[in-house]
Design a binder for these strands. Structure first.
Lengths: 291, 291
DNA sequence: ACAAAAGAATTCCTTATGGATTGCATTATT
DNA sequence: AATAATGCAATCCATAAGGAATTCTTTTGT
């Protein structure tokens, strides 16, 4: 029978290019690693590592073994993940990835609801741009993503669950058309935009459908920053309704635009994801927003 | 880290429905299997086997683990399969670096001989100048170099294996002294030379030993080109005998020079190189030329 | 038929040591 | 002065011997 410690040692040596480095990483001494690799080589009857000069390189057989070994080791760590939900005592853990806006305004409410039902559940939220989040999701470093759609990915399943309207935002006292400002009305305003990925794209498309190309005065990575700047009278903006709920009506004038401009927030999971109870709860709580 | 023996024991117990049976199959005693499964349960923090009545059945977590475990164990046995060809030496790879002349005229014959003995062997030949080849050899990007000597390098081992004579080559019908042309005879001829590194150097030294400094009319990177030009009557040349074996005697006059001028071809390996069966075969086949 | 405990055997790790190569500095040479 | 050669120190891996830890067996109990 093969031995996972030996496989792991072998992979580590190749990755780090040195027996000594692999030993340090594993918290062992160099002879231990040497022995592991040697035993593996004996068991397989093949030379796996070319000890040549100062560098350790895989032999042809070693290259082939690497492919298998990496997969096996990954599967083994996946086992721990898979057993997590069955564990007694630990209620579980849900790792959520999210874009900035949703994480500030939507997730806290959903998480609060989940926590009420499953107090022990550990919830981790990672903020990032859609691209990074989805990559981590595919790598199973995240359990669930909450992002602005569209979201692509062969192994991913997308469920839209919230339609967020983008609102025109102006300093208090600005003239705001009754039935909402259109592209014509807005095109000459000074614009401060949130430089989010899909949100920003939706805004550009909205203007572009009337043949207008927007040249924003400034772009910011933070919605809150844009809000403050608009409140200070520095210009107009188009911001997610979500971000405007904790009303700054004392300093801001807000209105839907014409035609209305919305963006879809969606939950994204790996298609083959095993649903733990915690994850199911989170999904259900997010669905509450669907109304 | 997971343990494959434990996984295997667990799967076996489920498959056979009994600890004792699993123990027999594994050639161990029953407590050993009990312990393995217990340790696995402890490590995963999950109960895996429901000991109910006479039959051992998997818990829900056990069912899930079975899926993973079977796959992992299969992959592990696939590893043995995958290593088999390398183990028997029927598969392998030899990366040879070579100067141009040897690679065209010597290597094909040696490779053909090796292939006859080890049909599965993968042979890669990289052409380049001596310097590049030797650098790659030191970096272990090549297994063997076949170059014109001398070849330096602290970590390299050199074995001369073929003495190649440089022949004077003239257009058909040229006057060629009976006992071979000397420097005196050749110094006034129009010369077309092959701009190889060590070969070219050997020629310069040959003339220099009689105090003559050669001013070749043209230099070419290809021996074949020089041959064609000489055949077309454009001048004389000194070329490796190896390159003249596929006789162009219908258009060329060839003769040893006086004193005879030879260059050594050598095999070069890293001093600490591990000899695979394939590499040994290649070396042996090259030695056949030594006669 | 499985679990638990104690002793035995094996495995695996650490320490110590030696061989080999590499990188750097020093020295000799053209 | 620049280049090549030499010598030294450092680094890395292999091996051997002793010791710690794991794992198996035997025995016994539920």
């Amino acid at each position: 029978m093969l031995n996972l410690d030996q496989l792991s040692a072998f992979v580590s040596v190749i990755d780090l290019g040195s027996f000594t480095a692999a030993a340090d990483k594993a918290g062992l001494t160099q002879p231990a690693i040497s022995l592991q690799v040697k035993l593996l080589e004996q068991r397989l009857g093949v030379r796996l590592i070319e000890r040549v000069g100062r560098r350790a390189q895989p032999s042809p057989a070693g290259v082939e073994l690497l492919l298998h070994a990496r997969r096996i080791l990954e599967d083994c760590s996946a086992v721990h993940e898979a057993m997590m939900p069955y564990r007694e005592g630990s209620v579980g853990r849900v790792r959520i990835g999210s874009g900035g806006t949703a994480s500030i305004h939507l997730l806290p409410r959903a998480i609060a609801a989940v926590k009420k039902r499953m107090p022990g559940l550990e919830i981790i939220v990672r903020i990032g741009n859609t691209e990074d989040i989805l990559r981590d999701l595919e790598a199973n470093a995240l359990d669930l993503a909450v992002v602005v759609l569209p979201a692509a990915g062969r192994s991913l399943e997308v469920e839209p669950f919230y339609e967020d309207e983008l609102l025109a935002v102006a300093p208090k006292g600005s003239h705001m058309p009754k039935d909402g400002p259109g592209t014509d009305f807005l095109k000459d305003k000074t614009f401060l935009l949130y430089e989010g990925g899909n949100t920003r794209r939706a805004i550009d498309e909205w203007f572009a459908s009337d043949g207008i190309r927007l040249k924003p005065a400034m772009e910011f990575g933070s919605v809150e920053a844009v809000k403050e700047l608009v409140a200070a009278g520095l210009g107009w903006s188009l911001l997610p309704g979500l971000a405007l709920q904790r009303d700054r009506s004392d300093h801001l004038e807000t209105s839907p635009v014409k035609p209305r401009l919305t963006r879809q927030l969606g939950m994204v999971l790996r298609r083959d994801k095993h649903l733990t109870r915690g994850l199911r709860e989170v999904i259900n709580c997010l669905r509450e927003f669907r109304s």
